[in-house]
């Protein structure tokens, strides 16, 4: 029987299927079910620093609204004993998850300020997280900000957090960087043990009937796999960090491709949300079957086997792939 185990961020995992940050990890019960179905590690849902700040300010704002203004209604709400605003409930969930499951729990932090991040990261480590995934969410709209300044702010954040925690650290990136390999290596130098490729940004949509900008977050499909697949393949062997492929993993084949491109793990959410946790069992079985049929002994054997450095023509990941795609498109047009 082929060996599905892998190693990611120094953690020994029984297989390469990892649950990426999603609502699935919001409840202890579903965390337990993920483990039962065979997932090898869980990246917790993201703790959004921005959201915490917003919640805190919003609560304060609305509890104050209209108060001490009119003699009969000095306040409008009872003063409740506590509010779970801030990271406490998240940290508590990490602690509880560590008690009820054996697989690694990777905390996920989505933030934007140096101060807040660092503190939250430290507290997550103290709560028992096996590793930390930083989900750096930033879109610069300032004309004055250069790409170097922007990328450097990422590096500085990683560096600051590295100094605070001893647990492994992964950085989840967006694909929208001009010189990704350079950034990737700078992040690794700053202390990242792993890179997660890629983040799926919230992308607003336009409602043309109401003439409004509306939030929209669609689940991925297998076609979304190709972007991270390419970059994992390119970065494999170039940076000293484990890579996790995230976005577009829906089938056992997607997961195998991720491995061959050079990922240590394949992270998934959309497929599980769409078709249920049973897909974990099914995909693991299919992977095993495929490996048996193709006489692979282990996942490790295939990891990076189709990376840019490993293929016969490395250029195909750069220019040739583009040419090939165009050619086939021309062919279809005929």
């Amino acid at each position: 029987m082929p060996d599905l185990s892998t190693q990611y961020l120094g953690l020994k995992l029984k297989n390469p299927l990892v649950a990426s940050a999603s609502p699935l990890s919001k409840k202890l019960d579903s965390i337990r079910r993920l483990e039962d179905k065979g997932i090898s590690a869980i990246v917790m849902y993201s703790l959004f620093e921005e959201q915490i700040v917003h919640e805190s300010r919003a609560l304060d704002h609305y509890l104050n609204l209209g108060t001490e203004s009119y003699a009969e209604a000095l306040t409008y709400f009872p003063d409740l004993a506590t509010y779970n605003i801030g990271p406490e409930s998240y940290l508590d969930l990490i602690r509880k998850a560590k008690e009820v499951v054996d697989i690694p729990i990777i905390a996920s932090l989505n933030g934007f300020t140096n101060g807040g991040w660092v503190d939250y990261a430290r507290r997550m480590a103290l709560a028992g997280a096996d590793a930390l995934e930083l989900n750096i969410y930033a879109i610069t709209t300032e004309q004055e900000t250069t790409s170097d300044q922007f990328e450097s702010s990422y590096v500085e954040l990683v560096s600051a957090i590295r100094q605070q925690i001893d647990i492994p650290l992964a950085v989840k990136l967006s694909p929208f960087f001009t010189a990704l390999p350079n950034l990737a290596s700078r992040l690794v130098q700053a202390g990242a043990n792993g890179l997660v490729l890629f983040n799926r940004f919230y992308q607003p949509d336009l409602d043309i009937d109401q003439l409004e900008v509306v939030p929209n977050l669609e689940l991925s499909t297998s076609s979304d796999l190709r972007l991270p697949l390419r970059w994992v393949a390119i970065l494999f062997g170039r940076i000293q960090a484990d890579m996790a492929l995230s976005s577009g993993v829906h089938t056992s084949q997607d997961a195998l491709k991720a491995m061959m491109a050079g990922a240590r793990v394949a992270c998934m959410t959309s497929e599980l949300l769409k078709n249920g946790l049973v897909r974990i069992e099914e995909m693991l079985a299919e992977m095993q079957q495929w490996m048996e049929e193709h006489e692979y002994e282990s996942i490790r054997q295939m990891q990076g086997s189709m990376s840019q450095q490993a293929v016969a023509e490395p250029g195909t990941f750069e220019r040739a792939n583009y040419m090939k795609a165009l050619t086939s498109f021309d062919h279809r047009m005929r």
């Binding site: 700040v53 919640e55 805190s56 300010r57 609560l59 304060d60 409740l80 509010y83 605003i85 801030g86």
Partner: peptide, 12 residues
């Protein structure tokens, strides 16, 4: 007064 409403409020 504001502690339980979160650190952000206290800090501001």
């Amino acid at each position: 007064t504001y502690g339980k409403r979160g650190e952000a409020v206290v800090n501001q």
